[in-house]
Simulated scan of single mutants.
Amino acid sequence: MRRPLQRPQGANGQFLWDLLTFERLITGTLTHLVYWAGLGIIGIMAFGVLGASVGVAVREGGWGILLAIGVLGIGMLGVFVAVLLWRAFCEFYVTIFKISEDLHVLRQDVEAERARQGK
């Protein structure tokens, strides 16, 4: 007869067990890395907008400077919106996993209560 898997003792075994059984989620750390990587990409986009506006100003000459200011303004507005949307997406992702952790704790409480009532 097979016995169910037992939790290993010790810090290293416990950490690996938690990762393999999804008892401990790594999404918090991973979400931070993804968030900062996304901000880096958005920063590169901002430099692209700046370069495009300078290119328009140089290519068009006199009135091109006015056009470049418009390109710069609209481009930076787009970058600002991208930063807000990226932040909202990452916060939503974190919220979903926090709800999962809370449900896990509630499930453990219900199981503990059932065990006490069964005795």
Rank of each mutant, 00 (worst) to 15 (best):
Q6F: 10
F92L: 03
E23R: 15
G70E: 13
E91Q: 08
G51T: 02
R87N: 12
G40D: 07
G40C: 04
Y93G: 02
K98A: 07
R7A: 07
I44D: 09
Q108P: 06
R107T: 13
E91T: 00
I99K: 14
A46S: 10
I99R: 12
L66H: 07
L72P: 05
G38I: 00
K119F: 15
A88D: 06
R114A: 06
V49T: 10
F47Q: 11
V71I: 15
L25P: 03
W63P: 15
E23V: 01
A37W: 04
D102F: 11
G73F: 05
S100V: 00
V34N: 01
L77N: 14
Y93S: 05
C90V: 12
V58R: 11
E60V: 11
W17A: 06
E91D: 09
F47K: 12
Q6P: 02
L16P: 06
G73M: 14
I42S: 03
A46M: 07
R87L: 12
A46C: 02
V110E: 03
L77V: 00
H32Y: 10
L85D: 13
R107V: 09
L20Y: 15
A88G: 04
I41A: 10
E113N: 02
L103N: 11
T21D: 05
T31G: 13
V110G: 01
G75V: 11
G28L: 07
L66W: 07
R107E: 06
W86Y: 06
R116N: 05
F80N: 11
E60Q: 14
G43Y: 14
P4Y: 03
L84W: 07
L72W: 09
I96D: 11
M76E: 03
R24K: 04
Q6E: 11
L72T: 06
L25A: 09
A68W: 00
T29P: 06
G55S: 07
H32R: 08
G62R: 12
F47V: 05
G62D: 15
R107W: 03
N12Y: 12
V54W: 14
R59F: 09
T31R: 09
G38A: 02
T27M: 03
I41L: 08
G75F: 04
W63R: 11
R87Y: 14
F97T: 04
A57N: 06
L33R: 15
G64R: 05
V81Q: 13
G75K: 10
R116W: 03
R116G: 01
F15Y: 14
R59I: 02
R2V: 08
A115P: 00
L25I: 14
L19Q: 11
D102L: 08
K98N: 10
